[in-house]
Amino acid sequence: MGDLWENLMLAAVVITVALLLRVFLALVIRRTVRVLADRVHDRNDDDLGFRARVLLAKASGVAADRQRQRVETLGSLLRNVVDVALIVVVVLTVLAIFGVPMGPLIASAGVGGVALGFGAQSLVKDYLSGIFMLAEDQFGVGDLIKVGDLTGTVQEVTLRVTKLRDTTGTVWYVRNGEVLTLGNVSQGYSTAIVDVPVANDEDPSRVQEVLRAALAGMDKEPEFSDQLLEEPSVLGVGSVTAGTMTMQVLLKTGPNQQWGPTRAVRERAQRALADAGVRGPILAGPYGPGSAT
C-alpha cells in the first residue's frame, strides 16, 4: 500500500512539473511571438535607391500584418509541439513509475510510427514544407507568385496547402510539398521592357532623343509617382528586322505595378513619334518592303 501511495505521489509530482513547464514554455513562446510580431521585416533589396525604399515603405502596414500573421502561426505550431511532447513524456514516465514494461510498448510504438510514416509521408512532407515556407517568409497573402505553370494571387496559406486565384478567377490548391520552384513577383520591385517599333531607315539617335523627351519626368508625375521607382530609361535599338527597327524602354516599378506605366509609355511614345514625323514600321509587300500592293 505504501508503494502505491509513493507511486501516486511521484506521478503527481511528474504531472505538476509538466504543467509548470508547459506554462513556462507557453509564456516564453507568447512573449517571443509578441516581440517578433512587432517587428516589420525589411525585405527591400540592397540595390534599390532611396526613392525606391520610400515608395516600398508605404506598404509597411501590410508588411506588419503579414509578419504578425506568420509569427502567430509559427507560435501556434510551437505550442502544439510542446503539448504533444510533454504529454508523451508524462505518459511514459507515469507508466514507468507504476512498473509497466516499456520495452514492448516502445517497440509497438516504433513499428506503428514506421507504418504511419510510410503511409503519411506525403502529408508530413507537405507540413514540413509549409513550416519552412512560413519561417522563411517566401510569400504571403496578397502576393502574386508563380508555381510551375500556375500564376496567381495568394488567397490563403496553411501548413499543408496554398490557395491561389489566377487571372480567370479559378482557385487552385497547391500542396506545399509539391512546390519545387517558386517565383514571387511581389517582392522588391518589377521591371518591364517596352518595345517601340519604327521604320528601319529612321535615325536611331533622333528616335532616342524623341523618346527621352517624351518620357522625361514621368516618374515625378502624380499619376505615376507611386509606381515608377525611377525615370523610364531608353536603352536603344533592341532589334532590326525587315522594315522594322525596335527601340526598347526599360521601366522599374514597385512590385507588380508595371502594367499601367507600360501602357502609358506606349501611348506617349506613339504620340511623340507621330508629332516628330518618325515613321512606323515599313510593311512588306509582295515585291519587298514598301512595295505597293
Score class of each variant (00 low, 15 high):
Thr244Pro: 01
Asp149Ser: 12
Gly140Arg: 02
Thr162Val: 11
Ala52Met: 01
Ala264Asn: 12
Arg34Tyr: 12
Ile106Phe: 09
Leu215Asn: 01
Met9Arg: 14
Arg22His: 04
Gly112Arg: 07
Ala85Thr: 03
Asn200Val: 11
Arg165Ile: 06
Val161Ser: 04
Val114Ile: 10
Thr151Cys: 05
Asn80Val: 03
Leu182Arg: 09
Gln69Trp: 14
Phe118Asn: 08
Leu128Gly: 08
Glu267Gly: 13
Asn256Met: 15
Ile97Thr: 08
Asp219Leu: 04
Leu86Lys: 01
Val278Ile: 10
Gly243Met: 04
Asp166Val: 10
Ile193Asn: 14
Pro204Met: 07
Leu180Val: 12
Asp275Pro: 13
Val94Met: 02
Leu251Tyr: 00
Val240Tyr: 07
Leu74Tyr: 12
Gly75Thr: 14
Asp47Trp: 13
Pro289Ile: 02
Gln257Ser: 15
Leu74Asn: 11
Gly130Asp: 02
Leu144Phe: 10
Pro204Glu: 10
Arg70Asn: 12
Ala115Phe: 08
Phe98Ile: 05
Leu55Pro: 05
Leu105Tyr: 09
Ala284Thr: 04
Ala18Gln: 03
Asp219Ala: 10
Gly169Phe: 08
Glu223Thr: 13
Tyr287Gln: 00
Pro101Glu: 09
Gly49Trp: 07
Val28Trp: 04
Asp137Pro: 00
Ala37Trp: 15
Val161Phe: 04
Ala276Lys: 09
Leu21Phe: 02
Arg279Glu: 11
Ala115Arg: 02
Pro286Cys: 03
Glu267Met: 13
Asp226Ala: 12
Val161Gln: 00
Ala96Gly: 07
Val94Lys: 05
Ala26Pro: 04
Ala199His: 13
Ser291Gln: 08
Ala216Tyr: 06
Arg206Ser: 08
Gly280Ala: 03
Ala120Gly: 07
Gly140Thr: 00
Asp149Cys: 06
Glu136Pro: 05
Val141Phe: 00
Leu8Asp: 12
Leu8Ala: 14
Thr167Trp: 09
Ala120Ser: 06
Asp137Thr: 10
Lys163Thr: 06
Arg53Thr: 06
Ala107Thr: 15
Arg271Glu: 11
Glu231Arg: 13
Asp83Trp: 00
Val100Tyr: 07
Ile193Asp: 13
Ser233Pro: 08
Ala64Val: 09
Leu8Met: 14
Glu223Asn: 14
Ile106Tyr: 10
Met245Trp: 05
Ile87Arg: 02
Glu6Gln: 12
Val54Tyr: 02
Ile282Val: 05
Thr153Leu: 05
Ala242Gly: 01
Asp226Arg: 14
Asn7Pro: 00
Gly254His: 08
Gln138Val: 06
Thr158Pro: 03
Arg39Trp: 15
Asp195Pro: 09
Val28Lys: 02
Asp226Lys: 14
Val194Tyr: 05
